[in-house]
């Protein structure tokens, strides 16, 4: 199960999903992310340090979260993806849409 750790860094919402975002856990991620965004932050960083796996259901909720952030005047980007996750992001073209960064700090700077 994904337990959605998060923190606010320099005004950006940093979401740190753990283990997997698969078909069975994607909905919980989407709901948690939406509730956290409703509290006001407009910039979102997905810190993928602890994420081993993402399926197309996970990509869908990242896209949904990104659209929500963008409509609020912010944006979303991704940091610290491991190889498996990077590969899925590359096949889907999400690496180009959102950008991949080596650190959360770089990701936050990119959203500035």
């Amino acid at each position: 199960m994904t337990s959605l750790n998060h923190e606010i860094v320099n005004g950006a919402l940093v979401l740190k999903p753990s283990r997997r975002i698969d078909s069975s856990s994607a909905k919980a991620f989407e709901d948690d992310a939406a509730a956290l965004l409703d509290k006001g932050p407009k910039k979102v960083v997905i810190d993928a340090t602890d994420l081993d796996y993402i399926s197309s259901a996970g990509l869908r909720v990242i896209l949904t979260t990104a659209k929500k952030a963008k409509s609020a005047g912010g944006g979303l980007t991704i940091a610290c993806a491991k190889n498996n996750v990077k590969e899925v992001l590359a096949v889907s073209g999400f690496d180009n849409i959102f950008g991949l960064h080596d650190s959360v700090a770089q990701a936050i700077s990119a959203l500035a």
Binding site: S55, S56, A57, L59, R60, L63, A66, K67, K70, V88, V91, S92, G93, F94, I97, F98
Partner: peptide, 21 residues
């Protein structure tokens, strides 16, 4: 093939693209 920006992007069909890849 995946295309489009954040506004127009759809994820439908992406699962099978990953499977085939």
């Amino acid at each position: 093939p995946p295309s489009g920006d954040i506004e127009t992007r759809e994820v439908g069909g992406l699962g099978l693209t990953l499977v085939k890849s």
